[in-house]
Design a protein around this nucleic acid. Structure first.
Lengths: 225, 225
DNA sequence: CGGAACGTTGACATATATCAAAGGGAGTGG
DNA sequence: CCACTCCCTTTGATATATGTCAACGTTCCG
């Protein structure tokens, strides 16, 4: 567990004592692909650190449409905010790969937060980051069409990974169904959006391989964002 | 300024010393209706406490459509999260009434946060609350239609203010243009949505006065949320 | 009083969801 | 190794919600 903690973004740089403290508030949990970690409205009794694997956090509409709020991978945490809120998880979490999670139990962790200013500050930074991302999601859902969101998604990856080349090549990290749900749409619409960008020779799609042929045009689509 | 602080949700129950500390990091600012407090992407140099008035926090699309993220009133704070993020405001803020703001300057405040665990804990709670609200907004934007959002908006008010009576009467706190932007739509669509609920005898609209004639149906619209 | 902002309604355009069908790829069991 | 199934993906036809544009009445405020 120590290793997971030290590899996690939230707790990098913490001293041994703090690490031990958190370990003592935690346990491990293995989940298999497709397994639910918690459901929306379940009482929030813990938050999680991903040691390995991939977890999606999502909401469902009554009709069954899914909106993914985030996907967490190795080193990342999820459901931190639920511990401080109204006592229940505001969304659901499901493993999209076999995963190993560190489960940090609420009560013990809250005590630690109160005692350890570093944890508190780290949390503030993390919550701010989450807010920023959700802000962004709201903006995209409310103010842009799906092709724009898709272009922006590609640009994010390119900038984050500092990809370059001619053409730039992106490997989609998720199935297209998952990507659709992240972008706030359904697979059919995503498919059409990809086809549209292809037809305009901005990208070339081959399965989950995307070649960016015209980065400039891609940027011009997201203009103003 | 002390009075503003003590009336603010973020700092209720703080002792005199803490209050003094925050006051010493702050200044006052008067803004008139329509005045911009900051623009998206401005460097984030302060956060704000509303002493009086009403402020909208919003995003604009390149085409000019507006999405309101939140409306802050007396006692509430805004832009706290921007201080910990990437250094700039992720949205714009504008007064929708003449307002009086307490401006809490970034650098001094950050020092205080590090020294004063109570402030840090208070911030964590506030950021969690904001996350929860944004979660909700994402859910509504992505998964529900506008009539559902409107119904949910009414129910929220009814539950928050514990309104009752037969019929229940709601006074809209905002102009309908503003409400539309909060719900992620435009005035025309809101107007039609209100008309639809009226025609079904669920509500009765008279200007900014809304009578709820059929609370049960209103709930059934939001079923599942 | 007069202009500006607000609100409503209609006709229309458009993006996206829905429904249906079919192909392809990966994995499983015989 | 093949056949089968399941899931993912794409494409087409269609439905629907919402945005756009325009016109008009109302309210508010200087």
């Amino acid at each position: 567990m120590k290793k997971i903690l030290k590899n996690s973004k939230l707790f990098t740089g913490f001293n041994e004592n703090s690490i031990e403290d958190i370990v003592s508030a935690s346990s491990l949990r293995k989940v298999t692909k497709g397994e639910m970690i918690f459901h929306e409205k379940d009482p929030a009794e813990a938050f999680f650190i991903v040691g390995d694997g991939k977890i999606k956090i999502f909401k469902l509409s009554p009709e069954g449409k899914e909106q993914i709020l985030m996907i967490t991978k190795q080193g990342e945490t999820f459901a931190e905010a639920a511990l401080f809120g109204e006592g229940y998880y505001p969304a659901s979490a499901q493993a999209i790969e076999d995963s190993l999670l560190m489960v940090v139990h609420k009560d013990k962790f809250l005590t630690l937060v109160k005692q350890n200013p570093n944890i508190a500050l780290s949390l503030i930074a993390r919550l701010s980051e989450l807010l920023h991302k959700l802000n962004r999601l709201v903006e995209e859902l409310s103010l842009t069409d799906i092709t724009t969101r898709l272009a922006h998604y590609f640009i994010n990856i390119i900038e984050e990974k500092k990809l370059s080349g001619q053409p730039i090549v992106i490997q989609l990290a998720e199935k297209k169904t998952i990507l659709a749900s992240q972008l706030g749409t359904i697979p059919e619409t995503l498919s059409r959006s990809l086809a549209k960008l292809s037809k305009e020779n901005i990208i070339k799609v081959d399965g989950s391989n995307i070649e960016i042929n015209d980065l400039r045009k891609l940027y011009s689509i997201t203009e103003g964002l």
